[in-house]
Design a protein around this nucleic acid. Structure first.
Lengths: 329, 329
DNA sequence: TTGTAGGCGTTATCAT
DNA sequence: ATGATAACGCCTACAA
């Protein structure tokens, strides 16, 4: 394996000089820089990231903390796109990343978790899908051990950024379009998790809409569960003229219930998952670019790790209707 | 950060002794071993895996090479379960893992790829979904730079193991059940990728079945594409009394086509993805435990990295019918 | 059985 | 601007 030592010898300079060139330090003459770069080229040298990580607490290794929904695989596509977006961007930025799942730390204390991350030389983390009652993760984010980016929760602080779409506005938009287009006035809203940040925002959006349009609304918590949405729809669906759901999965559950009940009600969802194209009926939904959001999160984490302060970032979204022939290939 | 040095001091022994205990070397007295373990406990010591990886070429870091289908997200669940199964098992076995996607190396040479992996101190790789024409990966597996486990391809050798279900038998089984149950005799077989190992095996299974049951069969390559399966079914479906598909996604494409054509034909798929529960009609399919297969692959890789030779492992599968009410929660 | 010391490939602090 | 050199935390001959 060709190491920095070989490069130094080949270029006729000291190891430390090579290191300076590699990490673009200021005080290197253009001439030496040229020689070193040439040697790097000729030897096909690629720095060993493990050694770099050991040597410097700077060179950030990043951990992805993914909350996999244990109950259904139907929304795995979201998680995988998060992972993909982050890893691709990390490679571009030359950051090492390891992927971890919430479930691995269920029975662990925050201290154990911190120890584990440190044992991996992790200096930055990206968290996907934290909820209000995840005290362990809250603690992780609040502490100053790591820089962190939280996707989908408003936890920005000095060394934490948060990245998400404007859930309140998005929920408002998609519901309004559905309700206006179908001339509705009494809406059944199936909300998300009680302790979820996004769910809370979305509810706010609905409440604003209800106020503005003077609607009648019944809110029931579907807990992001397709089954619960189905049951709620079976119980209340008939009495309302629109069903607004806080997630696509719940929208699908609601739609399937309505089909079984043999009544029609406009239904809208949230997320824009591919599955929406398979259920037969078209529904309005909010499309998020999960891979893009995740890439943004990675960039933001790099910014944090380079000493900048946390900030609150809102990413764009769009309203779509997905039909089967659009998604197959 | 508490290091091995602290443990040594706390236990009143030398650093190397602690290391020996940690890595369960033979020549350590029970008494010292006890003292060291006690110190480890008391200090909550967790070895730094980065330092370990740097120091010894033994301590294996593992790379997951995942072939993400760029065209559809509908089968992302398979990839994510692979990833999850591998990472969970790796944590259990105390192996570090990094996740990579084929797409990252599209325009790279095998040498570049090898250099990259070495720069990450990777000593073992698991490859998911390699096909016959992936020359780069073939080379990687054939070389002796890394130990490797290939999931879904028969590439076992001295330092490569292969892990997969018996695709020929599974295809035979699921097709037979579908055909016998529905009393069919003329079957349209929509096969997978021409250059895929699994696809080839599956075709063998079909041919065996055709011979045994004296069936009439037309084989068309659907390339694992839902759209192609749809088109093939539209063209040939009516003339046959059963449609056997080499993947669930194609089965769904076929089924949707039949529904649109308003004719009924029994259809069977392969993989057991959740999506099968959403399409309305129940179909037979082969259920694979992707997370389990991946965990097995990780165990196998550890075996290889500890010096053992590669082997060919077949994992179990089962025949299932998935219906909507089974999969929601 | 235990300890000493050199090395893994970098980065970073100091002299020069 | 450049180059020694000491870390980083751990592993592993080799010596004691």
């Amino acid at each position: 394996m060709v190491s920095i030592k070989d490069v130094a010898r080949h270029a006729g300079v000291a190891i430390s000089t090579v290191s300076k060139v590699l990490n673009s330090y200021p005080n290197v003459s253009d001439e030496t820089r040229g020689r070193v770069n040439k040697a790097v080229e000729e030897l096909n040298f690629l720095p060993n990231s493990v050694a770099a990580a050991l040597s410097s607490k700077q060179a950030g290794r990043v951990a992805l903390l993914v909350n996999l929904n244990s109950k259904t695989q139907a929304i795995d596509e979201i998680s995988l796109q998060y992972i993909q977006g982050a890893i691709n961007k990390a490679m571009e930025l030359n950051l090492d990343v390891i992927t971890l799942f919430f479930s691995m730390f269920q029975d662990k204390t925050p201290e154990q978790m911190i120890r584990y991350l440190k044992s991996q030389s992790i200096s930055g983390i990206i968290i996907y899908g934290v909820s209000k009652e995840d005290k362990m993760l809250q603690e992780l984010v609040a502490g100053s051990e790591f820089k962190s980016v939280v996707v989908g929760a408003p936890l920005a602080s000095k060394n934490t950024s948060s990245v998400w779409i404007d859930h309140a506005k998005a929920q408002y938009d998609v519901a309004k379009r559905t309700i206006v287009d179908n001339n509705c006035s009494r809406v059944l809203y199936i909300s998300g998790k009680k302790d979820g940040y996004a769910a809370e925002e979305q509810l706010k959006g609905m409440e604003k809409l209800v106020g503005e349009m003077n609607l009648e609304m019944l809110t029931r918590c579907g807990d992001f569960s397709e089954l619960q949405a189905r049951n709620i729809t079976m119980e209340y669906g008939e009495s309302f003229d629109a069903v607004v759901c806080a997630s696509d999965l719940m929208a699908i559950g609601a739609m399937k219930a309505l089909t079984e009940m043999d009544i029609f009600r406009p239904v809208c969802g949230f997320d824009g998952i591919i599955l929406m194209g398979y259920v037969g009926k078209q529904m309005n939904t909010v499309r998020q670019n999960f891979a893009g959001i995740s890439a943004t999160a990675m960039e933001e984490l790099q910014r944090l790790m380079s000493g900048k302060e946390g900030e609150d970032i809102r990413t764009p979204y769009s309203l779509v209707r997905m039909k089967y022939t659009d998604i197959i290939c």
